[in-house]
């Protein structure tokens, strides 16, 4: 078991370095240097070259990458010339809020999707199943921001009971947590989109398991259906969900980005969006790499969680 974790960890480290390299290369290709960001778009060519030389942007790409890697280890993500802050400081400010938004949505969506998927599987082809499947299909096919727009229209504009965007007053994570009315629409939007895909998967996994022989044996023992579902089906049907959640990190990040942009919520996603428009290289690079690291980490945790939950997977 320990060997399994070590092996996975080793691979993860290699992948992270690889990802950082590829991302760095791609961003470098798009934005060779932030000189224009620092000096302004009208800076002279000579000034740009001098600036590049001063800040090390004239070195070969590999050297730049290695020094970037070195900085990463010290948690130094570079400097944003547009916002005049170190990227690390920017992240620290915004990470909590993003984590709250995404985390709350993730927890809620799992809490809804798992029972929903199982219920659909148990009552297969019932009206409940058809309605929920149709509903999920529609949500699954809808861009998250469109759902957000609809909710804003209904609850924000027409009914006026919820704010249209998150107010500027919400500046800290704690404030976000304590002002549920502000956060309701963004969280609900993200949750709804996640539930659509999670419950589809869960339904399919539950259906597969319901057809299996061990469920039949459990019933033959005289267990009530409720006990069969909770004590036998639940754990086995959730196993693929662990992998799914681990693999969903990139999707969660994307959702985060869109929702924050839509609702004007001061998180990492909005930071990235603004950086895109401002062509703020350091922020873009940093967040993409952080996203990649989170993805790899997510897969790693999912792998380990599967090994813990499923005794068949406990390889050396």
């Amino acid at each position: 078991m320990v060997g399994y974790i070590i092996r996975r960890l080793g691979i993860a480290v290699i992948v992270v370095i690889g990802v950082a390299a590829v991302t760095f290369a791609m961003l470098h290709y798009v934005f060779p240097s932030p000189a224009y960001a620092a000096l302004g778009p009208k800076a002279s060519h000579v000034a740009v070259l001098a600036w590049d030389k001063q800040h090390g942007y004239d070195r070969p790409v590999l050297t730049q990458f290695l020094s970037y890697l070195g900085n990463l280890v010290h948690l130094d993500f570079g400097y944003s010339y547009k916002l005049n802050q170190s990227v690390t400081a920017l992240f620290k400010e915004n990470a909590g809020r993003s984590a709250y938004l995404t985390g709350a949505a993730l927890v809620l969506s799992l809490a809804i999707a798992i029972p929903l998927g199982i219920a659909q599987a148990v009552k297969r082809n019932s009206p409940l199943d058809y309605t929920m499947t149709a509903w999920n299909f529609a949500l699954y096919s809808m861009p998250s921001f469109f759902l957000g727009l609809i909710l804003i229209q209904i609850f924000g504009l027409d009914l006026g009971i919820l704010p249209v965007g998150v107010s500027d007053q919400i500046t800290t994570t704690w404030q976000a947590i304590t002002h549920p009315k502000q956060m309701l629409l963004p969280i609900v939007t993200l949750t709804a989109i996640n539930v659509a895909s999670f419950s589809r998967y869960m339904r399919s996994s539950a259906l597969d398991n319901l057809a299996m022989d061990y469920i039949r044996l459990a019933r033959a023992k005289g267990l009530s259906e409720r006990v069969v579902l909770t004590r036998h089906l639940l754990r086995n049907a959730c196993l693929p969900m662990i992998t799914l959640v681990g693999l969903s990190i990139p999707t969660l990040l994307a959702g985060n980005l869109l929702i924050e942009a839509l609702f004007n919520y001061q998180g990492l996603g909005l930071l990235f969006y603004n950086a895109l428009q401002a062509e703020d290289y350091a922020v873009l690079l940093a967040y993409t790499i952080v996203g990649a690291i989170l993805t790899v980490l997510g897969n790693l945790i999912a792998d380990i969680a599967i090994a813990v939950a499923d005794p068949r997977v406990r390889l050396d």
Partner: peptide, 22 residues
């Protein structure tokens, strides 16, 4: 496949957005 794993780790929307700016 390792190469594919590496590319898959990069958040799809992010990298597509960044490339779109160019």
């Amino acid at each position: 496949m390792r190469f594919v794993d590496v590319l898959l780790a990069i958040p799809f929307l992010f990298i597509v957005l960044v490339l779109s700016t160019k």
